[in-house]
Amino acid sequence: MGCCYSKKVIRTPGYKDPTILASETPFTVSEVEALYELFKKLSSAIINDGLIHKEEFQLALFRNSKRKNLFADRIFDLFDIKRNGVIEFGEFVRSLGVFHPNAPVEDKIKFAYRLYDLKQTGFIERAELKEMVLALLRESDIVLSDDVVEAIVDKTFSEADTKGDGKIDLDEFMDMVKNHPMLIKNMTLPYLKDITLAFPSFIFNAEVENIE
């Protein structure tokens, strides 16, 4: 005897089974389902196609879809694992997983390193470091003379570049973060531990019965 009610839920193009995503990330199945509620909201803000476009990402971060920001651009590009210009649900969950309080610190450092490797050469070069400092100063309307910026970049670079080859590699970056853990403070979002409380509606749309 079948049930008279069958729930038909329409999923977005990049939708992935929450059980699989939960097995590959620090999230539980319920948390992945709650993230789907967030994803639906973000991905329908401008174009309702179930994908997060860069303008929607900027809108969510800055309440302004046109606002440009070097670091938001880099984060979007890293979330867009397939490099097709949009963030799919699976990419969203896998990338946010790095920001989970329980994610390995090494993953957080590697993500930050890739973020800072603007030219994606596998190294952070001095020019990239200066470019990022200047971008932050522009963003925050802080005025520092070029001499001061040069001095800050020089000091950081000489501390990090322990091999003295003019570039910061991943090992050097890891060592520096170990000495200054606050450098990756933004790589942890405590909020992710409470995601099911923020989006309780996931219960009504859940496909997986949770036994966690």
Binding site: A45, D73, K130, V148
Partner: peptide, 24 residues
């Protein structure tokens, strides 16, 4: 200058993903 360039960068608003979770 006792400032770390990476520390300065980490204060970017573009790096603060907590805004994704705020009610719009």
């Amino acid at each position: 200058y006792n400032l770390n360039a990476f520390d300065i960068i980490s204060y970017s608003e573009g790096f603060d993903l907590s805004a994704l979770f705020e009610e719009k």
